[in-house]
């Protein structure tokens, strides 16, 4: 990598740093594609994911394209004949306890689930990365403090931390996202920290230091983009975990209000209907939706880890 000339106007620097960051993220995504396309299971994951993303997109931006509305069919006073019907040609996946079309409910739920996953990672990722990069670059007291605090958060099992935080906040999707983001950031901090330690030993950073470039610029232009690529891969996989934990939070009752088209809430409603076997479609299809989305992320993640981990792990061992 070339070392740029030390003089540049500030506006230009911002643009070029932004460009580099975007490029690093795109590189990460492109790296994902290069690995995924050679692995049938990962391709399966990608296919599932695309279906859900398209569904979520339609539910969020073009809701009128979904055959039934999320509330639909005369709720809150449904026609008893429509309540908890098994799958049929009119309701492909059956109906729920308010006679609403289950397919439509799951469909709208997909939008909410992906939103929770993406926002969780979208909030925790930049915070975590920034802290890790700063710790890895500054060293000394700053590093000690950041990394020990990170350790403390890591000592909490993720789900427990999320539950405790969600319980202290007012229930809702927002609370879920905050709870998850607080539980997720330390993982990125640790990842970025170890990445930075690796990167800063590389010749191009040393040469930048020797050339007397200011610290901030070295961090922004050299260290940050180089640490981002593998962290992007990790973050992509984490969207699945976020969706899974969010569903659990909702299921416990720490998520949005009953009646929301949220998969965890829907599973709780199905659970309280009692007989799983009688109303099999309710739990099965909602559970299947969660399973498939999480599976998609994990299939892709598994393939990536296989391709990348040996190198990462060796670096950690030494």
């Amino acid at each position: 990598m070339a070392v740029e000339s030390p003089v540049r106007e500030p506006g230009g620097e911002f643009v070029s740093v932004a460009g580099k960051v975007i490029r690093a993220v795109v590189d990460g995504l492109h790296g994902i594609w290069r690995i995924v396309r050679r692995d049938p299971l990962a391709l399966l994951g990608l296919a599932i994911l695309i279906v859900f993303i398209v569904a979520a997109f339609i539910a969020t931006f073009l809701p009128f394209l979904v055959p039934y509305s999320a509330q639909g069919l005369g709720a809150p006073n449904p026609n008893p004949a429509d309540v908890l019907r098994p799958p049929s040609t009119t309701h492909l996946l059956g109906t729920d306890e308010f006679g609403r079309d289950l397919l439509a409910r799951i469909w709208f739920g997909a939008g909410l689930a992906l939103e929770v996953g993406v926002l969780t990672v979208g909030i925790s990722f930049p915070i975590g990365i920034l802290l890790g990069v700063v710790a890895g670059y500054m060293r000394g007291v700053v590093e000690e403090v950041i990394m020990r605090v990170t350790d403390m958060f890591l000592a909490f099992p993720t789900v427990l931390l999320a539950i405790v935080i969600a319980a202290t906040l007012n229930r809702g999707t927002g609370a879920e996202i905050i709870a998850l983001a607080v539980s997720f950031w330390p993982w990125y901090t640790r990842l970025a920290h170890s990445q930075v330690q690796h990167v800063r030993a590389q010749p191009f950073v040393e040469s930048a230091v020797v050339l007397g470039l200011p610290r901030r610029r070295i961090i922004l232009r050299h260290i940050l983009p180089n640490s981002l690529t593998s962290a992007t891969i990790q973050a992509t996989m984490d969207i699945g975990s976020a969706i899974l934990i969010a569903a659990a939070l909702s299921w416990i009752g720490l998520g949005p209000q009953p009646g929301t088209a949220d998969w965890g809430v829907m599973l709780q409603a199905a659970y309280s209907e009692g007989s799983y076997v009688t109303f099999w479609w309710y739990s099965t299809f909602v559970g299947l939706a969660i399973f498939l989305v999480v599976l998609a992320f994990n299939l892709i993640g598994d393939s990536l880890r296989d391709a990348l981990d040996p190198k990462l792990r060796r670096r950690r061992m030494i």
Partner: peptide, 14 residues
Amino acid sequence: VGGVSLPSFWLAVV
């Protein structure tokens, strides 16, 4: 990978 992706609370109920 499937085992890792199953929601445990759902599976438990089933």
